[in-house]
Design a protein around this nucleic acid. Structure first.
Length: 279
DNA sequence: AACGAAACCTGCGCGC
DNA sequence: TGCGCGCAGGTTTCGT
């Protein structure tokens, strides 16, 4: 479900609700979500730990705990958090429940069961899965280094934007929107993109992700923030989910094609720049 | 090494 | 009403 703006929205809400709470019990109803320890160990690691801080690394949510431990949660497509005062309000697909000392329960809900949890020591947090090999958020990227990198790659720019080992936090919705705003055809191979165009893409990435974060993300099919809060950026989408509707700039009908197994939307006129016209 | 496609799941909306 | 299909905010793993 969530891309960077949605994850940041969830983190912000979690922070104001459960920061400094102590975990007094843990219930796991779907073992496979717990990745690097057994469900029993998971519970033991978390019991009596205080949540000192909550922050994001790309789309990962990090719960910083006492004793140098960290809980890493990835929502994948359909992960959601809810808080409630009673254990009896458990709903369908609530797979992990944290009991907190402030008379609250934190529910992790995930209908497609793709989400993941890891427990990591501070010392190995960024040197082992899942946080090793991640790229940087767009404002930390050295554009010259990135340009050197793409010079020898032939994947479509759409695939490149989705790859978390380069730029952190872009998913399918925002990749579509970034390429529209940049006037770049999503099929364009990255080695054909001029330096100035790369700079423009990076600038637009920041503009779109920042704006979407400000609006609490996009709520289209599945995403909601903590306790079902809806975002508002969906009202600003130019191409995503607009197949066969007129482009807001030129009235040409928006095209829909699959790239990197993800539905891709673009204006064939405004995003003609192919720099070699291959497809 | 690099790239594309399949796999992991459930649910929903659509056409028949 | 029911069934099959395609699709959904992501990533890892498997082939070529």
């Amino acid at each position: 479900m969530p891309e960077l703006p949605e994850v940041k929205t969830v983190v912000k809400a979690l922070k104001s609700n459960i920061k400094n709470a102590k975990i007094t019990d843990v219930f796991v109803f779907l073992d496979k979500l717990i990745k690097n320890v057994s469900p029993q160990e998971f519970k033991e690691y978390l019991l009596n730990e205080t949540i000192l801080d909550i922050y994001n690394v790309g789309k990962n949510i990090i719960f910083k705990l006492s004793k140098d431990k960290n809980l890493i949660s990835h929502l994948r497509m359909t992960g959601k958090y809810f808080t409630d005062t009673s254990l009896h309000h458990k709903r369908k697909h609530d797979y992990v429940i944290f009991e907190l000392n402030n008379q609250m329960y934190l529910f992790y809900n995930d209908s497609r069961q793709f989400g993941t949890f890891h427990i990591k020591d501070e010392s190995e947090l960024f040197t082992t899965k899942p946080l090793d090999k991640l790229g940087k958020e767009v404002d930390q990227i050295d554009p010259d280094k990135l340009y050197q990198l793409i010079k020898y790659k032939t994947i479509p720019i759409k695939s490149f934007l989705l790859d978390q080992s380069y730029i952190l936090g872009i998913g399918n919705i925002y990749a579509n929107e970034i390429l529209y705003l940049s006037g770049v055809n999503p099929w364009t191979k990255v080695n054909k993109i001029p330096y100035a165009k790369l700079i423009q893409i990076l600038n637009n990435t920041k503009i779109i992700l920042d704006k979407a974060t400000e609006l609490g993300g996009s709520t289209i099919v599945d995403f909601s923030g903590l306790n079902g809060a809806e975002g508002q950026f969906q009202n600003h989408l130019q191409v995503h989910m607009r197949a066969n509707l007129p482009c807001n700039k030129c009235k040409t009908l928006i095209k829909q094609e699959t790239i990197a197994q993800r539905m891709t939307y673009y204006c064939p006129l405004c995003q003609k720049e192919n720099y070699e016209q291959e497809k």
